[in-house]
Design a binder for these strands. Sequence first.
DNA 1: GAATCAAATCAAAGCGCTTTGGATGCTTTA
DNA 2: TAAAGCATCCAAAGCGCTTTGATTTGATTC
Lengths: 343, 343
Amino acid sequence: MAVNLKQLSEHLKLSQTTVSRALNGYPEVNEETRKRVQAAAKAMNYSPNIRAKGLATGRAMAIGHVIPVSNKHEMVNPVFGDFIAGAGEAYSQAGYEMVLTLVADDNEERAYRKIKAKGNVDGLIVHGPRMIEPRIPLLTDLEIPFVVHGRASQADTGYAWVDINNKRAFQRATAYLADLGHRRIALINGLEDMDFAYRRRAGYTDAMAKAGLEVDPALLFSEEMTEIYGYRTAQDLLARDNPPTAFLVSSMITAIGVRRAIDAAGLKMGRDVSIITHDDDLSYLQNGDSVPIFTATRSSVREAGYLSAKMLLGMIDQKPETPPTRMLEAELIIGDSTGRAPS
Amino acid sequence: MAVNLKQLSEHLKLSQTTVSRALNGYPEVNEETRKRVQAAAKAMNYSPNIRAKGLATGRAMAIGHVIPVSNKHEMVNPVFGDFIAGAGEAYSQAGYEMVLTLVADDNEERAYRKIKAKGNVDGLIVHGPRMIEPRIPLLTDLEIPFVVHGRASQADTGYAWVDINNKRAFQRATAYLADLGHRRIALINGLEDMDFAYRRRAGYTDAMAKAGLEVDPALLFSEEMTEIYGYRTAQDLLARDNPPTAFLVSSMITAIGVRRAIDAAGLKMGRDVSIITHDDDLSYLQNGDSVPIFTATRSSVREAGYLSAKMLLGMIDQKPETPPTRMLEAELIIGDSTGRAPS
DNA sequence: GAATCAAATCAAAGCGCTTTGGATGCTTTA
DNA sequence: TAAAGCATCCAAAGCGCTTTGATTTGATTC
């Protein structure tokens, strides 16, 4: 069923060279023979062995996605599926594969060196960058092309990234809440060492300062963004003497938990308590249709996946001097979850 | 930085053969030299080129996960991330890679043949089996080892699968609701052609019959399992003259939507309306902690991922006569979302 | 002391592809 | 008519590894 180049060329009574060239679009082959070759290839169901091709060309035709797996935090980022879907689209178009590697965060360096040596990817997408991100100098050093989904704050060398403007998004969201008269705004953020969480916090504190509001450390939270985290935190806060009137949340999932706590407390979202969340526009978790459930800073993570992949593929065959970067703005969409602060 | 076998062997003043054998644990090499080789390999950061190795051995040391991408339904299964995490664990342990391929559902056959010919995977995990699943005979025919996550109802040949007992789970859930006095139970199911949805429906109708209840076709729904689908459907149902008193839902995400509709209607979940959902035990969406939010049929998809991967790896090096199968039972956990039917 | 054996090592072939550096005709040019 | 040029095609080397089929050495046997 499956033929290899040798068999195909024998069948065509041509050399492997010619067949190879015919299929790869080289000019030095007669158009007529090319047609013949292509037809035969299709008929005999020929498809080049990717390993052999890789060996010969030095290109793996595959992109690696390295997913940090923490021993502390067992969570799988819910955003991952959509990101992959976006990236996968770009890879399919270009004939690339996508290979996933789980890397525990305790011996990252070894893992990345291994990836390099194994040589089964032409480039990497780096997920979940922390504020201080040793992988960036490491990969630069290893001379393997990479694009970071997100950014790292402390990086000396330039590197390629695709990120959303987290700071501005949360600045706008905070300002919007302040304009509605909210003074006590809780920030339910992601893990502290994650870069996006840091930037979002910066946006929040910035806007608070601009609005002349004090940041109460007792209203700042950062953890793995689960539903239950949102629920517990909000439940706790709402039971306090002087509860916040608004919540700024880093993920829809967590916001759903916050909302549940609000309901449980017998309060009404949008009237008694306001919520703004970041919305990654996940396919299975759309933020309402005509009327958004939550007021949100929205940016499609699927698109980010597509753009990251495209960028990386571009880098691989262009080898640009300076690494490209791409900043995506999140839009602030107004839904039912926000209203004037109760007096 | 990165050395290859030739360089390593030259440095050691040994032949490539010996070095290769030393590293791969063959007996015909002196223990002392083996130690020397291992030490040098580590020191020189040697890691075999996986493509060359694959070419030579005929094994790719990689497992493919084929994700069906529908043009109609843009959704990425939220369950996917956790499944991958579980499978990835098994692969890491065994030194395997995981490669993802998105396959549009319009020309599956071509795609799978290509995968076979490219030869970059030793086996496949098949996701999202439909009731009638042409991929099963196809892959059997192509002689590529595979494990199906789920089952297909119409398959003549034996094939390996890991699945949960969907029918029994929904049977039990339905019976539980019937015992609580519910007569009008809505089924908010997944897409009809999906095999799991079919089995769940079978469980539901079975239990309804056993409880002497009539199945009202107007209470059966099947769609892509998004939050908004749950919301809309429930909202619609609750506005009817004779609304259901209970909802049986195929996914937590959708159940969250149902819950939102219940809240919006001014009703109380667990008192006015009951919900039982299936719970895949996703890491970012835990069903409460001490007290589950939803009464649910629970089964960890992450574990399913791990087991599927293990099974496939086992098949690859054992080549069993009859394909293994593994049925996982879902446990019924009782939460706050169910109560006696209002009278 | 020659023959046998086991242990340890090696040279070379082969996996399926690309690519370099010719060949081979056939047409064009002077 | 010989030289040059062009369009096509090919043989063989090489990518980095494993593995087959020797070869070498020192120990053991008779």
